[in-house]
Simulated scan of single mutants.
Amino acid sequence: MRKIVLTGARGALGTSLRGPLSKMCDQLVSTDIQPGPEGLYDNETFHIADIAKFDEIAPLLEGADMVVHFGAIVDEKPFEELLGPNFVGAYNIWEAAHRHGVRRVVYASSIHAVGLEHTNSGADTTVAHNPDTFYGLAKCFAEDLGRMYWQKRGVESVCLRILSCTPEPQNIRALGTWLSHRDMVQLVTRAIDSPVVGFTVIYGVSNNTRSPVDNAKAAFLGYRPVDNAEDWAHSLFAKAGIPDPQDKALTRLGGPFAVVPLGESGVAAIQKMSEGQKP
């Protein structure tokens, strides 16, 4: 592959992707609104750019085969704060991809696009959008944008509905939702090297015994996760105590994001859950 563009390259997940992506192409263009890292890979260049500004981000996509779009605010915020990076930024990526003939966009979507769906509903990749926050609404917008750009303009998309991507599972909810960094890298790799994807949604989740979602309809991508949050079950249950069966933070796919007021941090609520407090 000639060129891959990675947005959000300074984030936790973007940082984990830079090395693997650099091995998949002749040229890796990494970008973020923050300054670049101290060291770059031999075939990597870094550009400071605001994805909410078309004239800053669009030129970076020229000559690219694929865009791995992980750039966004990764928490619930007031709508006005999310509008630029999460809504307009998504439009800018797909529109620039179309104008420059980019083959595919690999997008970091989120479980929060369906966050108010019941945990025990067996949600597959065709379940209707059911966002839990403005943040989740932005993911719905981008997924619909990707579907439209495939059907109207032929730009392929793989939307990765990431659940809980951390080095280790942090709470009892994560026994089902955890995505290890190793599996995250495999997921992105399969989204890139699959020959034909059209428009595809897949859940970003590890091989958890208690996974609440079903990826069967995206099996053609070849994603076969290897890590399992069950290895942490004993210690997480000991820390959590007895769960409340009426707690929407446990009974909805979005976890604590399903219970926070619109515009207020869901990440802070997840931290409370991890500390054994009510979100």
Rank of each mutant, 00 (worst) to 15 (best):
T177A: 15
I192E: 00
T177Y: 04
I172F: 07
S157R: 08
T177V: 13
M184S: 09
P167Q: 08
K152F: 12
A174Q: 11
V185S: 03
Y149D: 08
C165E: 00
K139S: 09
R173H: 08
L179G: 08
P195I: 03
K152G: 12
Q151C: 12
V158T: 10
R190M: 05
V158G: 05
P195K: 13
I162W: 02
L145F: 13
V188Q: 02
D144I: 09
V188D: 01
R182G: 00
A191L: 06
P169N: 01
F134P: 01
R153E: 12
S194F: 04
D144Q: 14
I162C: 04
D193C: 10
G154R: 12
K139E: 09
T133A: 15
R147M: 15
Q186E: 14
H181Q: 10
D144H: 13
A142F: 03
L179D: 04
A191Y: 00
C165F: 02
N171L: 09
C159Q: 04
A138N: 12
K139P: 04
I192G: 04
G146M: 11
G136Q: 05
T189Y: 11
I162A: 03
R190K: 15
R182S: 01
V158N: 09
A138S: 15
Y135I: 12
N171A: 07
D193F: 00
L175F: 10
